[in-house]
């Protein structure tokens, strides 16, 4: 039984523009559990890209613009480990000493990553309607280390009885995305995503599932580029879209 009747959904910038289907799937999963999902119209971005690059004033201005979207005392659910981490961990640093610090901390305090909310708050039970499939799970570093929710995605995918989960070598190692790192240190990032996709491919998984669109853009983009040269291989998909696809 659900304890939260209403939630805010914070899609985040990457999901809004690049992965809206994943974002929508997350909302549908929540709605199916009897939750009223509110999508604040004025939401844009948590501020993470600028914060990670050292541009704190710019990050603060963007983060601040979100506060008005999440005023009521209801949970904020984010379909991304790194945006969740930004809000829950780093808004405190960003807003320190600002007039709206308390408001920002209040929002941070009721922010959940999507899989965390599905497991911990909604205690969701899933029935697998899909065909047998082999998957590998890539947990984003923020989900793992900032949010501590790496095991929630495992728990959710584990409920699907026709899905076989395969484990890649060096599972906890970063995929090399790192926001502007992938641009500023493009070749290092390229070497890292090569190692990551090699490890994922070696499992024999048909699909790679993640909680984070940054990692997906990196890993999925690398798969696409490699497929163009080497033919078929795994694809990358957001966990919300994967769960919705298999259970709806």
């Amino acid at each position: 039984m659900s304890t939260a009747k209403q939630i805010y959904y914070f899609a985040t910038c990457l999901v809004d523009l690049l992965y809206p289907k994943a974002g929508l799937a997350g909302m549908q999963l929540l709605r199916r559990e009897g939750v009223e999902v509110i999508f604040p119209h004025d939401q844009t971005c948590c501020g993470q890209p600028a914060f990670n690059s050292g541009y704190r004033d710019e990050a603060l201005a963007v983060a601040r613009a979100q506060l008005a979207c999440f005023k009521r005392e209801i949970p904020v659910v984010v379909p991304s480990g790194s945006c969740g981490g930004m809000i829950r961990q780093h808004w405190a640093e960003l807003f320190a000493g600002q007039p709206d610090e308390a408001q920002a901390l209040a929002v941070a305090g009721r922010t959940y990553e999507l899989t965390e909310f599905l497991v911990d708050v909604l205690h969701i039970r899933l029935t697998d309607l899909g065909e047998p499939l082999k998957v590998a799970i890539h947990t984003s570093c923020s989900a793992r280390r900032e949010m501590g929710v790496a095991d929630r995605i495992e728990a959710l995918v584990g409920q699907l009885d026709k899905v076989e989960v395969l484990t890649q070598e060096r599972k906890a190692e970063c995929c090399g995305f790192g926001g502007t790192f992938a641009i500023k240190q493009a070749d290092v990032s390229g070497a890292m995503v090569k190692d990551k996709t090699d490890a994922l491919r070696a499992t024999g998984a048909q699909r790679v599932i993640s909680q984070d669109c940054g990692c997906l853009m990196n890993i999925g983009g690398a798969f696409e580029k490699q497929h163009a040269r080497q033919g078929d291989g795994p694809t990358a998909q957001h966990v919300a879209e994967f769960l919705w696809e298999r259970t709806a």
């Binding site: 899609a11 690049l18 809206p20 929508l24 999508f39 641009i183 493009a186 070749d187 995503v193 983009g221």
Partner: peptide, 21 residues
């Protein structure tokens, strides 16, 4: 640039989540 040396370019979806929602 460096991004597409190793990956395909990300492409905006046909509709934003704002619209889909």
């Amino acid at each position: 640039g460096g991004w597409t040396r190793y990956r395909s370019a990300p492409r905006p979806a046909a509709r934003t989540l704002h619209e889909l929602a």
